Amino acid sequence: MKKSILTAIGIASLSCAVATFGDVTNDNVMARNKVKIYPVKVTSIKTNSDGEFVIKGTTKAPKGTKVFIQDKKSYVMDPTQNQFSSMKDASWVKVKNNGKFKGYAEASDVIEGHESKNWDVYAGDKGKIKIFAATNIPKKTDDTDIPKSVRTALKKSNIKYTTVTADEKVADKGDSSSSSSASSSSASVDTSESYQPISYDDLARHPKKNLNKPIQISGEVLQVEHDDGDLLILMFMDDDPDETVMVNVNKKDKPSGSILKHDKITIQGNAGGKQSYETVLGENRDIPYVDCNEKVIDNGQ
């Protein structure tokens, strides 16, 4: 009888040990396989004659980490697809040992064209994309996909959208008589590479490094003040309320019509460090400042 009891206790103890060991092992596997999202810093966005954006950047992700581009969901844009590829073999874009990466994105894949014009993309059209690196992605993931586990981790991250703007190099050779705001703006957009797109983070964190640097920013107008014919504009870069910038526009660079609150505008000018302004709550806040050098592109609301 005692033997039976001891045997039963022994089996029960063994079962507990196995169960405990199994639980620990599963936790370790889950920890090892958990997707980790790394932010990137975009250092350059250019275009080529093949209709692509050439995007360079840096990240703290380990060497060999794969870099993705995700579209902002819309009628024709699919956020489950990876729009970033390498030139060498049209495969994954990977982080190099110095933390740098370079890849290519088709303009038609990251900018929603005009439905009435067979979805053609015109100069001045914009697209919003998230660029990020990710580790521990499923092994059999195709280089054109963003797996569910990565999309879930991305939603929990603080990765913000980057805006890309089409120029004449990447615009479709469609009907240029479109009455859309994009086609009307193409004639006035300065596509000179002297004005480089810049992220808000870079502009806000490095005012001295970027001082007098020729830059291009886009966003939504928050407030407009008139001063002897000049304009002082508060705008949200990339339509993000957390990314407020002050822009000074002199008389010669104003558009023909009035700039109104909620208008979508593009500014080309020189970074001017930071300026302080008073919020509606009476608080002083230092924000990036830009001196506009070219005609303001106003796409209305």
Rank of each mutant, 00 (worst) to 15 (best):
D109L: 06
K66I: 03
K117C: 12
P207C: 08
K264T: 09
I297C: 10
E220M: 14
V35W: 02
G229L: 12
V110H: 01
G113M: 05
K2Q: 10
Q301W: 04
S108K: 11
K208V: 10
T7L: 14
I217A: 09
F53E: 00
Y38T: 00
V170N: 01
K126L: 09
I131V: 13
K140W: 08
F21T: 13
F53M: 00
V76Y: 07
V249Y: 05
T25G: 12
V95Y: 00
N33R: 13
K56E: 05
D238M: 08
K117P: 03
I265D: 07
N250R: 09
Y38D: 00
S180A: 11
S4F: 07
K88G: 06
Y122N: 10
V247W: 03
E225L: 13
T47R: 03
I69E: 01
R151D: 07
D89Y: 10
Q301F: 12
S180T: 11
K126G: 05
D240C: 08
S186Q: 10
T43G: 02
S194I: 14
T165G: 04
I11V: 15
E112A: 14
P79E: 06
V249Q: 04
A134V: 05
K155Y: 01
K100V: 00
Q301G: 05
S180V: 03
K130C: 03
G282F: 08
D145L: 11
P214C: 06
I259A: 11
Q268D: 06
G99M: 02
M246W: 03
K213R: 14
T165F: 02
L222F: 12
D175S: 13
K94L: 02
K73S: 14
I131G: 12
E220K: 14
D78L: 06
F53S: 00
I129M: 06
I159V: 15
Q216N: 10
C292A: 15
P62N: 05
Q70D: 05
T162N: 09
K102W: 01
H206M: 13
G273I: 01
P39W: 04
V42E: 00
D230I: 01
Y289I: 01
T191E: 11
S185R: 05
P255E: 03
I217P: 11
Y122C: 14
L231F: 03
L211M: 13
S15G: 11
D190N: 14
S199N: 04
P79F: 06
V40M: 07
G257C: 09
I215N: 08
I267S: 11
T135M: 06
Q81R: 15
F53T: 00
V67I: 07
D172L: 06
K208H: 04
D23R: 15
S49D: 13
Q196D: 05
K264L: 11
S258I: 07
L6S: 09
K60T: 02
L222G: 13
I131R: 02
D125H: 04
D202H: 07
S192M: 08
Q275L: 07
P147V: 09
T162V: 10
D78W: 02
T59G: 05
I297N: 06
